[in-house]
Amino acid sequence: MTTPVKPGLVHPGREAVTRRGWLVAHKWLLLRRLSQGAILLLFLLGPWFGVWIIKGNLASSLLLDTVPLTDPYLLLQSIAAGHAPYKTALIGAGIVLAFYLLVGGRLFCAWVCPMNLVTDAAALLRRRLGLKGGRVPPAETRYWLLALTFVAALVTGSLAWEWVNPVSMLQRGLIFGFGLTWGIVLAIFLYDLLVAPRGWCGHLCPMGAFYALLGRLTPIRVAAERRESCNDCMDCFTVCPEPQVIRPALKGSGSRAIAHGDCTRCGRCVDVCGQNVFNFSLSINRRSVS
């Protein structure tokens, strides 16, 4: 704890800001916040102003009174709990599944899920306060948890995980009324801030794990297209919520595209790189899938 903290760890992306301007160096971050906000707002337009563009919540919704959308993870839990799926939910889940298979499963995490705001805020505060260390559970924990949520549904015959799933609670709370939801949200914020850096989204959340499984074959990827100009400032590693996904593309000799399912397509590395190494790319190359 006594070693001086490298300035890049506290304020990553300084160089990108001076070179390309604040706005460009925060482009994807701003777009993401816009997307997260807009989705919530669309759900609230109905109850607040009577404008029903989309109805329901992220578990299941009805777009423009015609298109059903259903979270496939929830539907799978329900099936595991022994309920035969109904056609509307099946169609809705099919649409959502196809969408995330196409654009990258954990795009959900970076662009839709409201919990991302909470854990990003915790990560930001952690950097600014210079908090280091902490105890993170192994990264595979989330896959174990994912499997266990299905087992729990099977054993209890009900959506057991949804009783405590903070992600569902938060999005539902924002759309339908908060109740005691703030307690569990605060708990996750403090866990990420004080106990485990990127602990929730990066190691525990089974919902994120589910979407990570969907994201393996996606053609839309972030790529270290100009990796030769990397000057090892480590800013991308500092901001990335899943730093382990960068190394193969940036330091390896194979594909330049980040093919790991854990990548959330948040684009922070694109923003933050002073050397302009990264960009979003469309690549069908599957060899580097790891």
Partner: peptide, 29 residues
């Protein structure tokens, strides 16, 4: 028991109830 396996807590029924009869329970209820 079956209801708790089937309902995915989307609130669509609540939204479509014209008399505001239905409520979606929040944590703490």
């Amino acid at each position: 028991a079956d209801f708790l396996a089937a309902c995915i807590r989307c609130g669509l029924c609540v939204r479509d109830c014209p008399y505001n009869t239905l409520k979606l329970a929040s944590p703490g209820d």
